[in-house]
Amino acid sequence: MSGPGVGWYLIVAAGLFGIGSLGVMLRRSPLIVLLSLEIMLNGANLALIAFARQVGSLDGQIFALAVMAVAAAEVAIGLGLIVAMARRDMALDVDQASALRG
């Protein structure tokens, strides 16, 4: 059974990546920003898996698995930071995180 061509998968992947990067740049809540980072990484994962099926090598799929583990670690750190900020009653708003400037 043949599914859609790799081009379609790539369009979805690029779409996810684009949505994610817009989210990182435009959203103000750090939680949503972390979520958007995940969407970017998963867009890249989808592209990797589609290409791996296309060229018939497992490398891309193994890569995608490794990326999932890394992404989970990254989010764990991000959420830890957000919890630490919330405990200190810091504003959970990326636009207000501007104590550091010159």
Binding site: L10, A13, P30, V33, G43, A44, F51, G60, V67
Partner: peptide, 20 residues
């Protein structure tokens, strides 16, 4: 975390394209 994660995601998508 945010900017670094953004950078790595860009690098990862680039790697996927080169792999493709």
């Amino acid at each position: 975390v945010i900017v670094g994660g953004f950078g790595s995601a860009v690098l990862l998508f680039g790697s996927a394209l080169v792999f493709g």
